[in-house]
């Protein structure tokens, strides 16, 4: 099946400027630095990583909310990075976003009806007020909101309900592709499951394709078909959710998975944990070679490749399941699914 969305060598660099009149560029934050992946129609690709790894920037650069520094983003065959704002407009309808903070992403001075209806008006998808009202109410019902509340304001709703408003707004234009940027991170535990189930249901009903960005590995594993792991602006591993959890190959993925606490004391007591040393280095000045080499436990155990790790940037190798690591490259990558228990 051909990809709905195809990202190649995406780079998003932000200049750091100094000076009042002549703003000299003194450094660059390489938030995203050479990211490639495909998303197939109807699929959910999970994008995980820790804060500052560039996962949200990737999502925004795909939607052209930031214009990428380099690389291409093909959506249904068209390279979005080459299009002017005007030429992009018809595509925006098909690519929407759900934000993390349901408090900050809804205009407090607009009613729920206006918030959800605005994209319909902007994209001229309704011909009259009656049709607009009907569609807004349908969207509210679809997202589990009481349509009688159409004239209320965002502050009258709880966090979970606000997230439903944000989802209804994203769905208004009947998009094909939605970037979900940490959609459950700000919600209470008992509400997170409601929102995840809603997203899954909507995907099934409407044939949506998701890029699901989150730092919560358990949630990502639950909702995604495939998962890409990011570290300091690069993708270090891609695999289907099952393989990634059962048999992670990149040392960073292994550490990340072992760090996620599991709500079961008996399981917790028996797990061995890879505790990484140190912090994520600054993307202003990422380490040479493999960006993970400063914290990598595998590099210490494999002195023969250690030099390569500090010198050469590892490329993603493999088909379907991909890993970017010199140690894995030396040992060879088992085919996807081989490590299944």
């Amino acid at each position: 099946m051909s990809a709905l969305l195809s990202v190649r060598d995406l780079q998003m660099h932000f200049p750091v400027r100094k000076g009042v009149v002549f703003q000299r560029e003194v450094a660059r934050v390489k938030a995203v630095d050479g990211v490639s992946f495909d998303i197939r129609p109807g699929e959910t690709l999970g994008l995980v990583g820790e804060s500052g790894c560039g996962k949200s920037t990737t999502g925004r650069a795909i939607l052209q909310l930031y214009r990428p520094t380099a690389g291409t983003v093909h959506f249904e065959g068209e390279d979005l990075t080459k299009l002017s704002e005007k030429a992009l407009f018809p595509y925006r309808r098909h690519m929407q976003m759900i934000f993390q903070d349901p408090y900050a992403s809804l205009n407090p001075r607009m009613t729920v009806g206006d918030i959800i209806g605005e994209p319909l008006v902007t994209h001229r998808l309704v011909s009259d007020k009656a049709q607009l009202r009907r569609q807004v109410q349908d969207l509210m019902v679809q997202c589990g909101l009481n349509p009688q509340y159409v004239r209320r304001y965002p502050h009258e709703f709880s966090g979970g309900q606000r997230q439903r408003i944000g989802i209804a707004r994203a769905l208004a234009t009947r998009p094909k592709f939605i970037v979900c940027d940490e959609p459950i991170a700000a919600l209470d535990v008992s509400i997170q499951a409601q929102i995840m189930n809603l997203l899954k249901q909507l995907q099934k009903d409407m044939g949506l394709t998701f890029l699901f960005i989150a730092h919560d590995l358990s949630a990502v594993r639950h909702i995604s078909d495939r998962i890409a792991v990011m570290y300091l602006g690069r993708i270090v591993e891609v695999a289907d959710y099952e393989t990634l959890y059962r048999d992670p190959r990149h040392p960073y993925t292994q550490a990340l998975i072992s760090a996620v606490p599991i709500p079961d004391p008996e399981v917790e007591a028996q797990r061995s944990r890879v505790v990484l040393e140190g912090d994520v280095p600054s993307p202003l000045n990422p380490p040479s070679g493999c960006r993970f080499h400063t914290r990598c436990p595998a590099r210490r155990l494999n002195p023969d490749v250690a030099d390569r790790c500090t010198r050469d940037e590892p490329m993603l190798i493999g088909q379907g399941r991909q890993v970017a690591c010199h140690v894995v490259e030396r040992d060879g990558l088992p085919p996807a699914g081989a490590g299944k228990a």
């Binding site: 509400i191 499951a193 409601q194 995840m196 189930n197 358990s218 599991i262 079961d264």
Partner: peptide
């Protein structure tokens, strides 16, 4: 809550609001 070591089962959310 989804568990990292469990399969893609449907989550059973607590209904209603906090």
């Amino acid at each position: 809550v989804p568990r990292l070591d469990a399969d893609h089962d449907e989550l059973k959310p607590i209904r209603g609001l906090p």
